[in-house]
Amino acid sequence: MDLMMTTRHHGPEPSTPAMVTDRTLNLATTEPVSRDLGQWEQALALVALSRDKQAYQELFGYFAPRLRAFGIKMFGNEQQALEMVQDTLLNVWQKAALFDPTRGCASTWIFTIARNVRFDMLRKKQSRKDDISADDLWADGDYPEAEDHQTQKWELWLITEKLAPHFAALPPAQRTVMEKVYLEEMSHQEVSDLLGIPLGTVKSRIRLALDRLREALDDSER
């Protein structure tokens, strides 16, 4: 079984995303598929509905090595990193039915599980797990969706000179999206296609950048 072969690439990510539309494709022959829209969401649905091991294997094969790298960065050692990977991906297997694609991407869901697992591991190590746990801190996204009205309100502001200096201070990923949308006047969908990131991620980065700019503006006017 060539389960892990897709993770064996050492170079930088290719500049054009590999579009994989058939989720049953042999992963061993494909380039990284992180930018493929909807694949992981479909895989999670199959795991939830029919305990689909093939779908789970795709999720595991892609995310396990990345979670491990993330864990090593966070914990500074491999043993705890692997404990985090195993616990996170066990949650993905057992709780796939809780994933709701209308509320966000599969990658977001998996990231938040890893974050919570890591938090509880650290608390447990301090023997404080029962004091304040991840369940207290991160409600499972059950907030009502807020209206997206502030985006429009800010569009006019963005062409003013006032914001220009703050633009450069945005985190690179947010700045790129903002430049495409506001300077090159691309649609959100076009930016999503160009950068190979989900549409929801484009919208999230715009909202974050707008809030950051507003914060910077507030501070500079004080």
């Binding site: 930088p12 491990r68 966000g104 998996i110 990231f111 947010q174 980065r205």
Partner: peptide
């Protein structure tokens, strides 16, 4: 929600460690 979406996208776009299991 937006920050978590961003962080999740970063995880998905990250590269595994060169010394993988």
């Amino acid at each position: 929600h937006d920050i978590e979406t961003d962080l999740g996208a970063q995880l998905a776009a990250s590269t595994p460690a060169s010394q993988d299991l």
